[in-house]
Design a protein around this nucleic acid. Sequence first.
DNA 1: AGCCAGGCCCTCC
DNA 2: GGAGGGCCTGGC
Length: 290
Amino acid sequence: MLIPVSQPLDLAATLLSGQAFRWRESDGWFDGVLFDNIVRLRHDTDGIEFTCAPDDERAIQPLLVDYLRLDVDLDAVYASIATDPRIEAAIARFRGMRILRQDPWECLIGFICSSNSNIPRITKNVESICTTFGRPIEANGSSRSAFPTPVELAGAGESRLRRLGLGYRAGFVASTAQTIVDGALDLATLREDSYEDALDALIALDGVGDKVANCVLLFSLDKPEAFPVDTHVEQRLNEWYLDGTKLSLPKMRHWAQERFGPFAGYANQYLFHDRRLRLKVSTTDDRSGS
DNA sequence: AGCCAGGCCCTCC
DNA sequence: GGAGGGCCTGGC
């Protein structure tokens, strides 16, 4: 089935830039798991070609449009955040990289797993969580698993999570899953809350600090002003903007939100992805050159 | 081998 | 409230 696309779109940058952890690329196709379906996407000249199973494509199509936020006018976002030549260059490099609208629960657990880790490992951890505790999905000879529900994950327990290689994050995942099961926090309602209120609610969860909370707000809770300051973004802000001024991470976040405005989170993602890829390229060059 | 990874929590001041 | 250290593990 085809989804017509008139918006700028870079599927690789969107799906493989550390927003979501379940997408794989092969032969120009991106394979993932969404809405209890195995989903395959490809960008062609007319738009997005996609297949899904086991559900009907007509049922999944609007959900996919929502997930990719194809309604967001990216050029208007760029006009809002392009405050200087350096971020303009990062935007130009990854023009079409979109911020996803993910399921808040899956997003939350994924980013609890991300702390002091790296994307290849996070990807492996999340996939292990799914295959061990999620419902299997078989379709057309391929097999993936749904992301486990809060009940399924709360039932896992810390020790079994630790055996998946989560390290000390296992306790955070178990605790947060239990909090959600207990009904102490309803993630879905956070979309209607203000940025500040939703931030406070998330930070109360075990294993969730300012950075992780801002990731969840940005990638799943309709808060485009969220600005997660991770190690890469911290470096970039220091290199490009702060000119030797030492700021604590929350102050750095606030500074960036003031500078980049209501779509600061988009600026964040371009700064992050640009620096992360630049590092990868330069290390590859070092190896081949020595 | 050793450093770093999309940080968080706890302690101490 | 802010700085500093510890932390599981694996990728490179």
